[in-house]
Design a protein around this nucleic acid. Structure first.
Lengths: 336, 336
DNA sequence: ACTGGCACTCTGCCACGCCAAGTGCCAATC
DNA sequence: GATTGGCACTTGGCGTGGCAGAGTGCCAGT
């Protein structure tokens, strides 16, 4: 009993492997040619029948081979696939490449390209969440007579900016002074903790001066509240062209989703994986309709951010999972 | 003589229009069904023969309709196409949408999305070149014990940043003081004019302090020299899925090129159009092999930056050209 | 519990033939 | 001389039919 159960899983694994490799429904006979199963074709057929009853594989039509279902891929990933660790040269390559990034942005760009190249899938990385978000410095730049640029520098090294329309005619010195005052008030504070101190500061001003300063203070609060992790960097989109076989129908909505990013962000927030852990979502397990023909292998990194690869359900999960995991760890480390 | 020449061009135009609309080679008979040419099919056939001799159209195989060649599209664009101005609602929509961008980055993002939506092609915008590139402020942020973030704020409102590894163990006050010194030296200067003043400053330091300050100064020079217009923002990539008919072969290298950006940047620098002017490149007129099946309609905006749409050669040039031109003008205006 | 064998069912592919659309050319006409 | 109607010819696309290959389910035998 135990043994036949094992064999069924083994056969499922073989089916998935063959299907991934050949892209074609796999039958009992060709399965025997490529795998040492130690049983006859008829037995394989019986087991396949059972697997189909359990909803793990599926026949496109009578007298065709079998194709794994979403549920089939799922059990494969959960119970069959053995993660193959990366080779030493690969690890070294990752290490070297990420090491001399000269910027967080650059680090992410390298990461995502690397991930796309190693897995041959579409890779995406969420911008890192800011963990200790203390304000380092605020700078005001008058870019036009009635337009002010507010720059916010955090201690983590992140830089955010936004322009705000202001009343025309104020001299540059006015904003220099305002900047100094604001810095005195907000420097060293958490981004979440600006409203009260700024309110106090505004109250301390002579009444006629308040509205002008309030304009800037509001922008500052909004800027501090904006979450940069709401952006995603992507690479390897051309890989979807290679893997999709039914192009016109599948690819267009997929490219739309990738560009929209909103769906991907929801996806990321839905997968609350602890750093280093990997989560796999396959086909219908993904919320969005357009992603039903794809699978996503994601991992957490840093402080609650995510990275992932996206490809066809017919994907090499073993290397995908190990690569995503390894890269997530490396990035976490380099972010300190 | 003059008249038959005109008719030939008219026929070329009709062929291009029909081919763009139907995606199928167009023959003399179906041409008459859709256009009032005032002549018989035989005459059209004769003219088509001549057009083919001139290399403007081409027959996929004997007894098939005609398809425009690159040269054919070229003459169509140069001599036949009449630019249809945008409708009033369209203009208003552009105006409204671009008006309340709260950032240069945001403005570009809106622009590129708008362009993609209006033309149904892939749209791309080069980051604006910095015209008057005076330095407003330099900020140093210690993000780790041996890692320093250098932030450069320009008067135009651009913010650039880069991290640099530094010797460990220096107190934060050291960098605060260094920042103040550097600001005194570089504030108000052109980005191209930093080497000499910074050299003088370094020379003025006591010899043992020089290497430490030099580390930072070098990064600053490199940062100032880095050209941000070497980046491109893109939208509407899913549109290539719709327009390409022969997928597997065409789309993959195309997506690669779009991701690489290098080819696109070379393309942009190659088209030195004055702001507001439009340039069209069709098929083999484009340097890169992967772009031979596409056409690009580009325009200059701002101070020497570019924006463009990219689509199949079989593209609606009339609306493409007018839309690109209109948007380039709007963006130039909003950038002041 | 497996296995070998057998009858059955599809899909993919190839060959065939027909049709529609298109062409080129030529003699006739304005 | 330019234009036109007519005609013979070419060719890709499409539907049909037959055939081979791969696969299945089931059953009787070990």
């Amino acid at each position: 009993m135990r043994e036949t159960e094992d064999r069924k899983l083994h056969i499922l694994g073989a089916i998935v492997e063959d299907y991934v490799a050949t892209r074609e429904p796999v039958g009992s006979k060709s399965l025997l040619e490529r795998h040492e199963l130690g049983v006859s074709a008829a037995t394989v057929r019986n087991d396949m029948s059972l697997l189909e009853e359990e909803g793990l594989i599926h026949q496109p039509h009578t007298s065709a081979g079998r194709v794994p279902t979403d549920k089939g891929y799922r059990t494969f990933v959960d119970h069959v696939a053995t993660i193959k660790p990366l080779s030493a040269p690969e690890r070294r390559a990752i290490s070297v490449l990420l090491e001399d990034a000269d910027d967080v942005e650059d680090l992410l760009a390298r990461t995502v390209r690397l991930l796309a190249q190693l897995t041959q899938q579409v890779a995406m990385v969420q911008y890192p969440a800011r963990r200790q978000a203390r304000i380092r410095h605020v700078e005001l730049v008058k870019v036009a007579d009635s337009l002010l640029l507010v720059v916010l520098i955090l201690e983590s090294g992140r830089v955010d900016q936004r322009t705000v329309p202001v009343m025309a005619g104020r001299p540059a010195e006015y904003y220099a002074a305002l900047r100094d005052h604001l810095n005195r008030v907000v420097a060293g504070r958490e981004v979440t903790d600006l409203t009260a101190p700024l309110g106090d500061y505004l109250d301390s001003l002579p009444r006629p001066e308040r509205p002008a300063a309030a304009e800037v203070a509001e922008t500052l609060v909004a800027l501090a509240a904006s979450r940069a992790e709401d952006r995603i960097m992507m690479a390897g989109t051309s890989n979807i062209a290679r893997s999709a076989q039914d192009f016109a129908r599948d690819v267009e909505p997929l490219l739309d989703v990738l560009e929209e990013q909103l769906v991907l962000l929801r996806l990321f927030t839905a997968m609350h994986v602890s750093p280093g852990a990997v989560e796999v979502r396959i086909g219908s397990e993904l919320e969005d309709r357009a992603l039903h023909s794809t699978a996503v292998v994601g991992a957490g990194y840093g402080a609650g951010s995510h990275l992932a690869i996206l490809g066809p359900r017919r994907m090499d999960y073993a290397t995908g999972i190990s690569t995503v995991q390894a890269i997530a760890r490396y990035v976490s480390r380099y972010l300190e």
